[in-house]
Structures are given as structure tokens and as C-alpha cells.
Nucleic acid binder design. Sequence first.
DNA 1: GCACTAATTTACTATACGGTCAACTAGATA
DNA 2: TATCTAGTTGACCGTATAGTAAATTAGTGC
Lengths: 117, 117
Amino acid sequence: MPVTIPDEILERMAEKFRTLGDPTRLAILRALLGGEKSVGVVVAETGQNQANVSKHLKLLAEAGMVRRRKEGLQVFYVVADPLVESLCELVCGTILREAEADVERGRKIMKSWGRRG
Amino acid sequence: MPVTIPDEILERMAEKFRTLGDPTRLAILRALLGGEKSVGVVVAETGQNQANVSKHLKLLAEAGMVRRRKEGLQVFYVVADPLVESLCELVCGTILREAEADVERGRKIMKSWGRRG
DNA sequence: GCACTAATTTACTATACGGTCAACTAGATA
DNA sequence: TATCTAGTTGACCGTATAGTAAATTAGTGC
């Protein structure tokens, strides 16, 4: 018989996906996957408002995806959950494959203009 | 130098995550991972309102995660994107491991009450 | 203490989205 | 044609959340 997943687990799964479901947060995580960075650097690399970056970083920290370290005036963040990289790689790979398929379809459509039919 | 991911790719990645970022949709997908099912069956298995299930299924279909097939009065849906299973397995596994870690921590705390210190 | 900088927080707006009920559509059956 | 059933859609409400600007906090150097 099928195993029913309790609501609480589904909610926790959904929360992780939801946390990754925003392009700005993905950009921030992408920056942080390159190593620990200060908020200022992340702001520069993402081109986003500092207040906004700060809020997203807080959200990511609360979700346990990122770790915070204060040093003088600056605050540094790193990716703390290996899941982030796995999930992003999987999804990004899929999208690139989809894009390649689109290109291929396009190629065929282009070709079809060159022959009768 | 770091490869900057274009906004459009980030948005497409975020959209996939966002689609999975809802417990009701996860419940629906969980039901459909067991094989093709009619809307009615999904409604029964998830215990959700039919209108609501129908809307979520539409959303999932538009995101390409699910395929629709009509047969007489009924409409059947299946998971169409292998990404769904991979992502859910990864996240679900992580959460279960987190839960086990919590239990282990709890065990240690319990034990600490039994000895001096 | 005062000025300066890095980051966070607050207040606000706009928008997206989930849930529900009611209306509607499509197909089967009499 | 009238009716029943399975699904979808539309209208509505409430809530959550992204973005921004302004106020605030925390640390540095004069």
C-alpha cells in the first residue's frame, strides 16, 4: 500500500522549495556558493538593494541554508546546507537541457523551410 | 572568474522550485508518482477540495510537471517530469535525516538527565 | 562625543497566491 | 431533451511576501 506522507513532512519539504523559489535568493546563493562573502560583496554581485539582500539573507539563514558570521563592521555569509548545491545543479541542468532541446527544435524548424513539405 | 547566471535562467529555476513550494501540490504529486490517476482519485487521496485540486493540477500542467489526458467524463494526470521525483527524493531524504538528528539530540539530552554534570 | 560605514529593521505598497463557493462546461445516460 | 456526473473556471477573501525608502543599530576612527 502507498505510504502516506504526513502533512508536517510535506510542509517542511515545501518550505525548502519555497525558499529556493525566488530568483533574487538564487542569485544570492549562487554568489555564496563561490565561498564566504560579506553582505556588501553580495550586494555588488547581485546588483540588488542592500536592504533587500539583507532580508533575503536573513530568510535563508532562518531556513538553515546559510550561516552568518560577524567580523567588525561586516557580516559574512556562507552556504551551510549541501542540499542547496545539489538541488540547484539538478534544476539548472534540467533547464539547460530544455534550452538545448528548444534550440534543436528551432534548428529543425529552420531546416523545414529549406525543403518541400 | 565566476560565471554569472543570466536573470532568465534564475527565473526559470525559481519557477520550478516555486511550483514545488506548496504542500498541497506536493501531496498531489506524491499521489501521482504512484501512477496515472483521475482527478477524483487525487481528490480522495489528498482530502482536498475538488476545485482546489483542479487548480493545482492546472498549475502543475502549465509548469510541465504533469501531463493531462481526457477520457470520457474523467481526466487523468501523470507526472511528466523526472525532475519531480529526483528533487522530492533529495529533499525528503534530507528532512528525514534532519529528523533523525533531532531524535539523536533528544536522546542525548534525555541521557544527560541521568548522569551528573 | 561625533562622524562615518556596514548591516539590519521598520513601515509601507503592490502583487501573487491559496482556499472556498458558486457558476459553468463537457460528456454520458435515460 | 432533461438530467446526472466529473472537472474546470470565475469571483471573492485573506494572507504572505518582494521591493523600496527611511529609521535604527553596531562597530570604527577621529
